[in-house]
Design a protein around this nucleic acid. Structure first.
Lengths: 201, 201
DNA sequence: GAGCGATCATAACTTTGTTATGTCTGCGTG
DNA sequence: CACGCAGACATAACAAAGTTATGATCGCTC
């Protein structure tokens, strides 16, 4: 198999490009193959099915997201570092909207990642949990805070992307500066969580 | 048109049932029609297209959600009332998983609600914003807090549903009592936002 | 050099949304 | 009362897209 991996990579690249261009709903097996000059069967020989192809894109997405999040410097002071982490998370979602849809939204109707792939995705959460644990080591249950923070990041990003996709007003109050709104919201949450310790009810 | 609206209702009911049974990806026009004893064309005469049918389900969902949220008593004391509101929001999502997917996730790939429908959805956010404004009238920008709270509710619910759908461990730490985890997270957020006022940095 | 497995093509099959076309019923009008 | 027309519904065909069946080619191994 001399260039078989290369062909595979070519197909993956084409799939990634088409995914980004046309969104998760517009990714067609025929087009992926045609974009590489192959016949439709190429996808099936290399990925067994559309599911298999999507799974590779899914894993690729987590690999990229993991790299982006790792690149956030960890020497920051507490909340500042977490804020940067959260901003990197949003940047990934905005810059890779379709991929984010595949990974975290249900943008591809019948795609269900395998257990192994899902476990890979888990590492992303663990990266966040580690930062949270660093932030407040004395907190009894950092995973609980990490859960809340992740849910907030994900919710904010999802709503922003929905906004962007649908053009129209969803929460018109928030149009204008999405990144600023996101930062404000995350800052609110972090400061709030910070204050909670200082002021133990 | 003697019983035409009735036929329409029958189709809508069947569609809702099939949506709940098989999820958004499993809703087929043929099956909706067949479930009512009609031919496929019945859907097209009454809803013009699958999009049209989905749009009615979308509106129906918001109607139901609005009723559920309105039913939350508004005489509660501040955060307590908002917590009940948030729990009602989650209950709707969990009890109407597929509908929630249609309304707020991208579970139906190519469905895009019309502007009018989207505006209807906006009222849900406004209901939350009103409660938040009641909660802390002195807050300068209640819509901003409402945005954060909605994003958090939505994020938590989305992650929980993803969990449930995929069976496997996503954040295994959180398996066990989803409603309890949700309540804890929301309570954290609300207490934290509350504390932020008392302690103005 | 023969066979075998992997890669790739052509073409057919299947599902599902959609459209074309026709029938029938009920109702308002001349 | 006959006419015709509009809406509801059926049958059947069409189109897009995932998939499978089948065959051809090429390289590698025995």
């Amino acid at each position: 198999m001399p260039n078989s991996t290369t062909t595979r990579e070519t197909l993956l690249d084409a799939a990634l490009r088409l995914l980004a261009e046309r969104g998760p709903g517009g990714l067609r097996v025929r087009d992926v193959a045609a974009a590489t000059g192959q016949s439709t069967m190429g996808v099936y020989t290399h990925f067994a099915s559309k599911q298999g192809l999507l799974e590779q894109l899914y894993l690729h997405g987590f690999s990229r997201l993991g790299a982006d999040l790792d690149a956030v410097p960890s020497h920051g002071e507490g909340a500042q570092e977490l804020l940067a982490f959260a901003l990197a998370y949003r940047a990934f979602a905005v810059d890779n909207e379709a991929l984010y849809g595949l990974m975290f939204e249900r943008a591809t109707p019948d795609f269900v990642p395998s257990d192994a792939s899902r476990r890979t995705g888990l590492t992303t959460f663990e990266m966040l949990a580690a930062r949270v644990a660093d932030w407040h080591p004395e907190r009894a249950d950092p995973a609980s805070d990490a859960h809340l923070i992740w849910a907030t990041m994900h919710g904010l990003v999802t709503i922003e992307l929905m906004h962007e996709r649908w053009g129209g007003p969803l929460v018109e109050h928030l149009s204008g500066d999405p990144e600023g709104n996101y930062e404000t919201a995350i800052r609110s949450l972090l400061e709030a969580l910070d204050g909670r310790d200082i002021e133990p009810a």
